[in-house]
């Protein structure tokens, strides 16, 4: 475990906490894409199939449980909680899941580390995570007033991905045989998707103005 990896995981954890804070305390999910949250739940469910079979470390297992538990509870809150679900604007969140799920599944069947159920599901989860933010980014563009917590949530998610890239660079130079093309290419694509958002996030921060993405 290196500092970039730990910082990346902590940033990821922070993004989840920010979202849970918004949902639990403010009882609102305004500006949050349920589609993206459902895709994340699917990402973790398919990636962590090894949770009970391969023990890596207590840290690893704990984090997996946190990401699984939080992603499914966020989806539950947005869909079913009496007050929270009222702030969900379905008409704005129109992205179709299967536009992302089907190509990722096909790609995972073609490009994987090993042609086994677990490995294909793992590759699928990596590809799906790379594009899962798209419904959220589309929703942000449609939202005239992006509240601070939503902006911070997306920023933290993007920062987590950028830190993972630094982690891979570090590991490549410090470990022997550390080469993972599937995660590297998908991770790079995923981080690039945030580039536009980052630009406007920093602009709004620099000029002390409310975040707004051009339509």
């Amino acid at each position: 475990m290196n500092i970039f990896r730990l910082a990346g995981d902590m940033t990821h954890l922070a993004s989840v906490l920010v979202l849970l804070l918004k949902i639990h305390t403010i009882k609102s999910c305004a500006g949050i894409s349920l589609k993206t949250q459902e895709l994340y739940a699917l990402v973790f469910a398919t990636r962590y199939l090894d949770i009970f079979t391969d023990f890596i470390s207590l840290y690893n297992t704990t984090m997996k449980l946190i990401f699984l538990g939080s992603s499914f509870s966020i989806v539950w809150y947005i869909r079913n909680h009496k007050i929270v679900s009222r702030s969900y604007d379905k008409s704005q969140d129109t992205f179709r899941h299967y536009f992302l799920i089907i190509p990722c599944l096909l790609l995972a069947l073609l490009v994987n580390e090993k042609f086994t159920f677990k490995e294909v599901m793992w590759a699928f989860s990596i590809y799906l995570e790379a594009v899962a933010i798209l419904p959220q980014l589309v929703l942000l563009q449609r939202t005239r007033n992006i509240d601070n917590l939503t902006g911070q949530y997306v920023f933290l998610l993007g920062a987590y991905r950028a830190l993972y890239i630094l982690n891979w660079i570090y590991r490549y130079f410090t470990e022997t045989h550390y080469v993972h093309w599937i995660t590297w290419v998908s991770g790079l694509v995923q981080t690039l998707l945030y580039a536009d958002f980052f630009y406007y996030y920093f602009e709004s921060w620099k000029n002390n103005k409310k975040l707004q993405l051009p339509a």
Binding site: I56, K64, Y164
Partner: peptide, 10 residues
């Protein structure tokens, strides 16, 4: 041979 730790990232 040590078995490679598979997918140790989250």
């Amino acid at each position: 041979l040590l078995e490679e730790k598979h997918h140790d990232e989250l």
